[in-house]
Amino acid sequence: MRNLKVDSVDMVYELPKGGSVQALKDVSFDLTGGRLLTLLGPSGCGKTTLLNILAGFLAPTAGTVKLGDEPITGPGPDRGMVFQQGALFEWLNVRKNISFGPRMRRKPTGETNAKVDELLATVGLKDFGEKRTYELSGGMQQRVALARCLANDPAVILMDEPLGALDALTREKMQGLILRLWKDTGKTIVLVTHSVEEALYLGDRLFVMAPRPGRVEHVYDLPFANTGLDVEPRELKASPEFIEKREEVLSLIWEMEEQIMGHEGS
């Protein structure tokens, strides 16, 4: 299990009209392999920027990012990516979407096929392998995206608001699936979300981030992800401990929002 090491990362965007925005300032953490980290915060706090840096899509202006001992300099199959939506290849059927990674990396066909069968069963799409992706519902499409990323057996899975476009019911079901995949595969997951409840329920560790400049404001280590599968999710989310944490984080974010409003008002 390789750790994800982020060391004093700065990210400054130069604006085309001059001036700049500090999207991240001095972000450092060391995430032990196998943990599920959720990133939460108001818009502009740099959570997606941080995820893109971890994925290797963006190079930070200062600081280093490492997976194990390897510095991250670009995207690679050791870090799988799940987007909110629209990242499936609609000209390929579900099977071909899932096997895209192994096929591009020229893995043996037989091995890949067996893997795809297994993954289809894992994400509950056993009979949908030959379907086109646009024939599936939003939730099913995200299941395909999850399976596609797992097909490469990455060390880390990065998710950018993976459930953001789904309806509330599907969202809850998918949260369960993500938890189960995390437990079964033991992979490191970093998940960006807008939903406080989702961040608390899924995060075995939670970063509440703050804007201007983007930074990690608060770190929580949470028990809910570890018990999440044994208890009924609705029950867990209605438990006093969960509600207490939820109110705490919510008020934290409200405070930030108010500061931003005040900042803009002045």
């Binding site: 690679g76 987007f83 909110q84 629209g86 591009m104 990396r105 990323c149």
Partner: peptide
Amino acid sequence: SKIRAAYSLGA
């Protein structure tokens, strides 16, 4: 996001 997904898949 499609391009990024493909690169992340090792293309």
